[in-house]
Each structure stands twice: as structure tokens, then as C-alpha cells.
Design a protein around this nucleic acid. Structure first.
Lengths: 161, 161
DNA sequence: CTTAATTGGCACCCGATTGGTGCTAATAGA
DNA sequence: TCTATTAGCACCAATCGGGTGCCAATTAAG
């Protein structure tokens, strides 16, 4: 539960590989063979990342993919969103709309249920904030992450907040 | 993606209701009707929570459920674990074991893939830490949560760390 | 020019998971 | 006795995710 899809896992793995091989043009087959993953799915994930503009692609026998952005500026959140789609709002939001009169169910006091919405929504937001705070640079070089951990795992970055 | 199951959603909703009606014995049917949810599934969720020891149950026409623990000491993580099962480790862990020689695939350099494991695992742990830091008391009374937010959303609790 | 290896873009299948229900006990109040 | 509840399953149907098939477009190498 609360797990990432294989598509996201493969995509992040490929991103890490591309970070470790910056400048090279690496094919989906190379990546899949290197990590012993189904090469077709790795290809699909790479297509997603390419469609999102995170990668450059070249066709042909010497083709492959290359990072189009700096590893430190591409976040896990962006990548996961491109690989799995944007986080869907809880359907409780829809019911909140119903409670506000946008639906056919008027007299049900559904709104009281949605007392639960905001805290759960907050948790979801915290999760995503975590994703958006982690860059693929940190994925590729764990020591980078370890440094940040010494300062406090969940500490907000001082620049923004 | 990264969503909770309906079972967990209904269970948390029921817990919030029981917090708001502390001392009363409320039946699954009452809760389901109040929030217009499928009463059988609400019942299943309540059974789970009861099996986990979070609720007291009484049978018979006047039966129902009651909180067995203080709302401030029952965390969302505990409830979700009881409703959805414990968080399964990434199968990348299994592959890490393979990389260490516990499996039939020896020469694949799978371990390099698992460079991605620790950061992703860390993210998963952060998510769970978030769940275990949030109590159903906070779910039931959002203003409680708001107070905590003013002190910094992701700040570790000072008691433990 | 031909061939091969790649990306691009779908459609599709199959197995697992999930939402939801049926059924039958056990309990207990009216 | 009757009824409304919890307890514990088994089961079904729909959705979703992992994975594959297929074909077109591109491009390097022969």
C-alpha cells in the first residue's frame, strides 16, 4: 500500500542511470539489460519522461536518451507525476462539491464526512512536498542525501520557508 | 496513485465519528447512514479495527462500537496498518538479497539498481512517519492540526528526537 | 539501397487487487 | 420468539497495473 508503480520505479532507475552517465546517449535496451528489467517497460517509462521534456531522445541505431535538465533541478515529484500522472484528488472532494449543491444528493450531510478530508489531504500534500523536495541528484548519489539527513530529515529548506 | 483504499477511508471516517461521539456505542449502520457509505464495508472496516484492539464491540440490537483507546494516542498509521495491512517492503529489497547471493541470479549487477533503494525507502519511511505522527484526534478536530502547522509542518516532535 | 537498431504511439491481454455482497453463525434486547 | 446487531468467511465483478504486440518513423552502417 502507498507504493509506487513499477513504471515509476523503472523511470527513476533510468533517471539515476542517466545521471551517472551524463553526456552519454543511452538506449532503453542498455538500461534494461544493466538492471535486468523488462526493456519494453523501461522504454515506456523513458517515453513518458521524454514527453514531459525531462529527456532528449535520438532515434536510429546509435540513438537513446540523455538528460535535458540538471539533475539537481529535476525532482522526484516531477518525475513521478510524469510517470504515474498527477496525484488525483480524493473523491471526497467530489462529494464535497455534492455537499455544496453541485450534485443530485442534497440533504445528505456529507460535508461532515469531509471533516476527514482536510487532514488526509494535508498528509497527501506532505508526501508530495517530500517528493518535490528530493531531486534525482540525491537519488543518484546517496551521500548527498546523507548530508541532508545530518541536518534533520524532515527539516524544511531554509531558502523557501 | 499513492492513495488509500476505501477500506482505510471508511475506517478512518468511522474513527472520526467515534471520536466525535465518545462514550456512546454506535453501530456500523448508524455510521454508514450518517455518511451515506456502504454499510457492509463500514462494518468490515470496523471489524478490522476491533480485531486490532482499537475498538470495543457489543452485539445485539443495542450493540455497536466504542473507542478502546484515547483518540490522542491512536495514530493514523496504526489504523491504516490495521485496515490495509502492514507496508510491504519494496521488492527491490528481495533483489538486494539476490545481489548478495541469496538467489539464483548471481552475476547481474543488480546491486547498482538498489542504489535507488535507500532514497526511495527513505521516502516511504518519511510517509509512514507522517502517518504515525498524526493521531485520529487530529483527524477529528482539524483546529488541533492547524495549531501544529503553525509550529512547522514537518518539524520532528521534540519529545522523541 | 538495404538492413538493422532505435524511438514513438497505440491497443491489447492477463493476473492481481479492490470495492462490494451473500451467507451463516453467535449474541442479546424486546 | 423475533429482530438487530457483530463475527467470519467466501465469493463475485470491476478496475488497475505489469507486460507485450504491432507498426510507423528515424537514422547509422553495410
Amino acid at each position: 500500500m502507498l507504493r509506487l508503480t513499477k513504471r515509476a520505479e523503472y523511470g527513476l532507475t533510468a533517471l539515476v542511470h542517466l545521471v551517472d552517465h551524463s553526456g552519454e546517449t543511452v538506449s532503453a535496451r542498455k538500461i534494461s539489460e544493466h538492471y535486468s528489467l523488462p526493456h519494453r517497460l523501461v522504454g515506456e517509462a523513458l517515453k513518458d519522461l521524454c514527453r514531459a521534456g525531462f529527456l532528449h531522445s535520438e532515434r536510429g541505431p546509435a540513438g537513446g536518451y540523455q538528460l535535458a535538465r540538471q539533475p539537481g533541478s529535476l525532482t522526484v515529484g516531477e518525475a513521478v507525476a510524469a510517470l504515474e500522472g498527477a496525484p488525483e484528488g480524493t473523491d471526497c472532494e467530489a462529494k464535497a462539491l455534492v455537499g455544496l449543491g453541485y450534485g443530485p444528493l442534497g440533504d445528505l450531510n456529507v460535508e461532515s464526512k469531509c471533516l476527514i478530508r482536510s487532514p488526509l489531504h494535508k498528509i497527501q500534500e506532505d508526501i508530495w512536498r517530500q517528493f518535490e523536495r528530493t531531486t534525482i541528484q540525491e537519488l543518484a548519489s546517496p551521500e548527498f542525501t546523507l548530508l541532508r539527513n545530518e541536518r534533520g530529515t524532515l527539516q524544511p529548506l531554509q531558502t523557501s520557508a
